[in-house]
């Protein structure tokens, strides 16, 4: 395959960025999108140019490191992570636009790499349990009803990639935050911090400068792990419950 790439290049956080055009040839349809970028970078390095910086780690769709807004879609046209997106989703001769996640809470570090540590701080604010865990407990020690376990698992799938923020017209982190809150709040292990978790994580999310939810639904469409929009509804419910409880105390 022969492709024209228009890639966002930005030297550092303070520099102005712009789209640069590159041609790549000899791309196999079975390559992943990241392998295609590797091919481009090899050529750039050989010709003495600065390679395109982009985030990646597992390349198995489980770590959440890869990003990229491809032709206006977070993680590109398929509902998966960029590392799991294959070039067969494009046609020979296509022009492909590649941009970083855009949100003021995710500043660009270089080219396509953005700083997502705002997510880490949201997790630090309450995305954990305080019960001592130690080695794996006996499976029946803490019974969890099946529907609750399913609900927790569905939300635990969030890999913290930030596609939801990138896709949201308001740069909101509601889907990520709600996935983390719902995951722990439904389980008995998460019960001791049920109220503080939602209040603190939402407060941290606001503190980081993410936008608010207008229920446009773009986040859930972009999420590679299928976290549903109703996850946000669940978070709102938990937040209102915790606020009422705090008010009574």
């Amino acid at each position: 395959m022969k492709l024209t790439l228009r890639v966002w290049r930005q030297k550092n956080a303070d520099a102005d960025g712009a789209m640069s055009t590159y041609e790549v040839d000899g791309i196999s349809p079975d390559m992943s999108f990241l392998e295609m970028l590797d091919t481009l970078n090899e050529e750039l390095i050989l010709s003495g140019e600065d390679p395109v910086a982009f985030d990646h780690d597992c390349r198995e769709g489980i770590c959440g490191a890869c990003s990229l807004v491809i032709n206006g879609d977070a993680h590109g046209p398929e509902r998966t992570t960029t590392c799991q997106l294959h070039m067969r989703s494009f046609a020979d001769g296509d022009t492909i636009d590649v941009e970083p996640w855009r949100a003021s809470a995710f500043p660009v570090v270089k080219d396509l790499v953005v700083d997502r540590s705002a997510f880490d701080r949201i997790i630090e604010a309450g995305g954990y349990i305080t019960a001592p865990t130690g080695s794996a407990p006996e499976a029946h020690a803490t019974p969890v009803p099946k529907p609750d376990a399913d609900f927790a698992f569905e939300h635990a799938e969030c890999i913290g990639c930030g596609a939801c923020v990138a896709a949201c017209p308001n740069g909101a982190a509601m889907l990520f935050t709600s996935a983390k809150i719902n995951h722990l709040n439904v389980l008995p292990q998460g019960a001791p911090e049920r109220e503080t978790r939602v209040l603190d994580m939402v407060a941290q999310m606001d503190e980081e400068g993410f936008g608010g939810c207008t229920l446009a639904g773009e986040c859930a469409t972009a999420c590679p792990k299928g976290i549903p929009l109703t996850s946000i509804t669940g978070m709102n419910k938990e937040w209102l419950r915790a606020t009422r409880k705090a008010g009574r105390r």
């Binding site: 807004v69 206006g72 941009e99 949100a103 809470a105 308001n170 740069g171 608010g212 229920l215």
Partner: peptide, 28 residues
């Protein structure tokens, strides 16, 4: 206040635009 915050949270637009992304928000 929420709209001001939302616009500040997403200051730069994507070069490759998708109009559908903000339909509901814009009409509201």
């Amino acid at each position: 206040q929420l709209s001001r915050r939302d616009i500040k949270a997403r200051p730069s637009k994507y070069v490759h635009r998708k109009p559908r992304a903000s339909y509901a928000t814009r009409t509201m």
